[in-house]
Design a protein around this nucleic acid. Structure first.
Lengths: 255, 255
DNA sequence: CGAAAAGTTGATTGTCTTCAAAACTGGTGG
DNA sequence: CCACCAGTTTTGAAGACAATCAACTTTTCG
């Protein structure tokens, strides 16, 4: 099946100025996307994994449910959400992705994407054709293992989300969400206590399995308790330990 | 790393009568675990992926959170649950696995398992040392792709669970769960309308993010509505379309 | 058989959703 | 520059759904 022309993901592409010269070996995000401790020869091979880059405007789709799968994408800049939609209108955000993270793993199993990847701000990604990735990972052990680790990490992350959705209450969910977000941002050189949300309350709610009103109320509650300062999408964490306590303290020892 | 003797998963091992002769090439489950359409030469190589088998008694652990990761496991017989536990006692079942399914993918990322795999009935698994799997998949393209597909399938499955946990109500969750279970059993030659649950109401509840009482009540409701016949763990589906309608019908068109 | 585990059912409570209204934000164009 | 509008966010009140607490039954297994 050719991609549906009524929903051209290409609309969201910015004009590629020129064929952009890309090389992982020079990339400052390499330590996030690629295995460490490679020889110069291996680095040279790795450079062949990424052929091109692609820009996606805010609101645009990197790929959509149903589209043919060809490549994984490494996020260079910007912020994405992935969501699975159901024909009946139900919609679930399955994750938020930022620089250095890999997106598109869902498409491998059936050569077809099974979720939408939407840019929450103007973004640029490295395109990694999956065929080439497989070929080169057959030559570079470290790359093969790296691909396995990335997929395993995603599985483990989703276990965490299942724990969150299956057994936490609204406050615990939001606290865990904020701590996770700020920790990932911190690992990328941003503040450990301040963050700007790239997503709406509704998107947060969809991810956390709660309604946008509940998200908003819970933010307000945290503010009242002196845990956060919230101004629109700008969040400052005033008491990180307090948030951690909310996540970990079982209110009454139940499962 | 040798297995930690303080947490001997080996306790649950049944005595291996002899070194069991194992060969995927003769296995009747091969089509579930392994790629299709292999040459005889490739089949010969694949036979080296599985070195041994291992038995696990009902209630025993195939592996536990924190144990060193060495191998993936293909289930030959029996039924498992995987669950992530938190020190504070919270516990979430992340999946139920049956014959032909692969278990242990969570351990790849940090060379350490991050969940428990517990046998819900006496079981036997094929041990696939991950190192060998990587080596052989470098030689057999189809195997490499197969491993990628297995991991991707798990990611997609978990997306489905997130959708379930994040946006469905109790009845929808249980209906979806039963349909999924019976569909997988049917694919293995069992009835399309009858099944025996291997897990308790509490385990179902943990997986579906609801309490055991709610699981029980929802079963009763389905019985009242003529959708099921339930006797203990023996379930007969009387109206599969009715269950599908419950999953798909949005009660009032919301998200 | 007897004890422990698993399952059912009822009554009550609590959390989150729903519905509703108002305030705020940011971008557009007069 | 300001008014305006759509989208987003906050907050309140009422209601729904599932959790909790509790009692009892049934099943399983040593």
């Amino acid at each position: 099946m050719p991609p549906d022309p009524t929903l051209p993901a290409t609309l969201s592409r910015l004009p590629d100025e020129h064929a952009m010269r890309v090389a992982c070996s020079n990339c400052n995000l390499r330590e996030l996307c690629m295995p460490l401790g490679l020889s110069t020869e291996q680095l040279r091979q790795i450079d062949q994994v990424v052929t091109t880059r692609r820009k996606v405007r805010r609101g645009g789709a990197l790929f959509r449910n149903g589209e043919a799968f060809h490549s994984l994408f490494a996020i260079r800049t910007g912020f994405f959400k992935t969501c699975v939609g159901v024909e009946d209108g139900r919609d679930q955000v399955t994750g938020f992705q930022m620089a250095g993270e890999i997106i598109g793993l869902d498409g491998i199993v059936n050569d077809r994407h099974t979720c939408d990847a939407i840019a929450l701000e103007d973004a640029e990604v490295c395109v990694m054709p999956f065929r080439q990735l497989g070929e080169i990972s057959r030559q570079v052990d470290a790359l093969q293992h790296h691909v396995h680790r990335i997929m395993s990490r995603e599985i483990v992350r989703e276990h965490g989300v299942m724990l969150l959705l299956g057994s936490m209450r609204a406050e615990e969910r939001l606290a865990a969400f904020l701590l996770n977000l700020v920790q990932r941002l911190h690992a990328r050189g941003f503040s450990a206590s301040e963050l700007v949300l790239r997503m709406t309350r509704e998107e947060i709610g969809s991810y956390l399995g709660m309604k946008l009103e509940t998200v908003s109320r819970t933010f307000s509650k945290f503010v009242d308790e002196g845990l956060l300062r919230v101004r629109h999408r700008h969040i400052r964490i005033l008491n990180a330990q307090g948030l951690r306590d909310i996540v970990n303290e079982r209110p009454c020892g139940n499962s």
